[in-house]
Amino acid sequence: MADSPLDPRGGARMLAHFWMIMGVIVIVFPIYYVLIASTHTTQEILRPPLPLTPGSAGLDNYRAAFNGEIRQIGGVSVWVLLMNTTIMALGIAVGKIVISMMSAYAIVFFRFPLRVACFWLIFITLMLPVEVRIMPTYKVMVTLGLIDSYAGLIMPLIASATATLLFRQFFMTIPDELLEAARVDGAGPWRFFRDILWPLSLTNVAAIFVIQFIYGWTQYLWPLLVTNSNDMNTIVIALKKMISFADAQTPWNLVMVTSVLAIAPPILVVVLMQRWFVKGLVETEK
């Protein structure tokens, strides 16, 4: 069976490796490039082609960036940028998990009037991404006084039909017998949730956490709209500002350091939590 499609011959497998290596190079190269660029001086970056090996200015660049030199090009220190982005990403991830678990719990484990209507009310929001209601949502934010606040960055992105649908789907696979047994033992809604449902949900929670953390970290349009002051910038927005106002004086080495700091945390989260993330992504979204 050496020639079976399930077990390609050596030559075919070598060819497959070749294509994968080509693919991985294209995929990784842009990220590798900024990583390398962040270890060179501005003069070296501006004189292409850049060497493909780390330069000697790495330590200096990162030390300068963390010691406040980003403030000159980004308006605020890199610590503030990282803190803002972390607060936004964590706020969205945790917030989504909490409110969508609550509503999915209500829809699956209770019977009340308008239950189906509530489900649809939530489900339909799948069709209203923030991009299609930019202006009016912005006006709502102005009315509520949420411009330049963490609440403004987090709240409108926290209601997600996807997470609710996912938890609902998962809760529906919990056997009736489990709930019956719990109720016979006198468990109320809270005890049942804490002792039975939550431990069973942990894998799903981990998967949603990764997906939503990435979603929050990589937001662009929304933070662009609701933040005016530099103090509230996320790192992605700050980077965009650095690039649009680039001129002869722009310290490109620090821009590259900022790029690395903007992409490293979410990449680490995805790679370290790969097992849950891949399973969650593929199983939940189809």
Partner: peptide, 20 residues
């Protein structure tokens, strides 16, 4: 290695290509 770009913000993906 293939999943890295998933974690990169779309705006930054654009900037990386612009750098190159």
């Amino acid at each position: 290695l293939m999943i890295w770009p998933y974690a990169v913000a779309t705006a930054i993906a654009g900037m990386l290509w612009l750098f190159l």
